[in-house]
Computed example of a mutant assay.
Amino acid sequence: MIQRVQTIFLFLISLSMGFALLNPLWEKKGSLPTESARLTALQYEKIATLPSGGTSTSVDPLWYLAMLMAGVAILALYAVFQYRNRLRQTMMCAINAMLLTAIMGIALYQTLYKGKAFGNPDDQGNFLPGFYALIVALVCNALANRFIRRDERKVRESDRFR
């Protein structure tokens, strides 16, 4: 049935991935007010001031991060409609957990290692709402998996009584 509680969590995973795709994940200010670095799902952008007085913009595309986020959202939506096969839903949640771990690893690598070289090395920068949406997706995925396994256990117990 679609109205089970794990459906809500799977739908929340898709919503949070969409939110993370549309909002920046991290931002750091440089030593000058015009300098900044920003991480979104599509790019890592650095704006620096040149000694001549102009500004330099460096953009590193991160299309693979956006593809992973979209993949997690699509897989979670597909898992919603696999309610008749709970083992398949569990497998999809496991795949989503691996993809979400990869997304978090990429985001943390970009912020903590590549971002540290920009501006003040002691300043870590600020995590923005898009990053927290990734954490929400991880928690919702764990909860969805827990409720799917609970339903499967109930069905197996009821089959023993028959």
Rank of each mutant, 00 (worst) to 15 (best):
Y132S: 03
L108P: 06
Y64L: 10
S36G: 12
K46S: 07
Q124C: 10
T34N: 14
T101P: 01
S16P: 06
L134V: 00
G53P: 11
W26G: 08
N145Q: 11
A70W: 06
L77M: 11
R86C: 03
T7S: 11
K29T: 09
C140G: 03
F11I: 01
T57M: 09
F131V: 03
N126K: 15
I47Q: 14
L62A: 08
S52Q: 12
A41M: 08
D60T: 15
K116N: 07
K28I: 03
V155M: 13
V59P: 10
T34E: 15
N23S: 14
T111H: 05
T57R: 14
L39P: 09
Q110N: 06
F81Y: 12
I8H: 10
A48F: 12
G119A: 07
L100K: 02
M17Q: 06
D60F: 15
Q124V: 14
L32N: 12
L10N: 04
L99Y: 01
T55K: 15
D123Q: 09
E27G: 14
L42E: 11
Q43W: 04
K114V: 05
M17R: 02
D122F: 11
G130R: 05
A48V: 15
N141W: 01
Y113A: 01
V139C: 10
R153S: 12
Y44P: 04
S36K: 15
L87T: 14
I106W: 06
G53Q: 11
S31I: 15
R162L: 13
N126V: 12
Y78F: 01
G18Y: 02
N145P: 00
Y78G: 00
A144E: 03
I95W: 06
R84F: 04
S158D: 14
L22R: 15
Q6V: 00
F131R: 02
K154S: 13
T34V: 15
K154C: 10
Q89D: 04
K46A: 05
M104I: 00
R146Q: 09
G105F: 02
N141K: 03
L87A: 15
A97V: 00
W26T: 07
G18D: 10
V72S: 01
R156L: 14
R84Q: 11
D122V: 02
L87C: 08
M67P: 01
T7R: 04
I135V: 06
G53K: 09
K29R: 13
A137P: 02
F81L: 10
A76W: 04
A48Q: 14
G115L: 00
T57Y: 02
T49K: 13
I148C: 03
V139P: 04
G53D: 12
N141T: 02
M67L: 07
A41S: 15
D151H: 10
R162P: 03
I95F: 10
Y44A: 08
L75C: 05
Q43R: 11
G130W: 04
V5P: 05
A142Y: 03
E27C: 10
P51R: 09
V155L: 15
R150S: 11
R84S: 07
T111Q: 09
L50N: 14
L134R: 02
S158L: 14
L25E: 09
L42F: 10
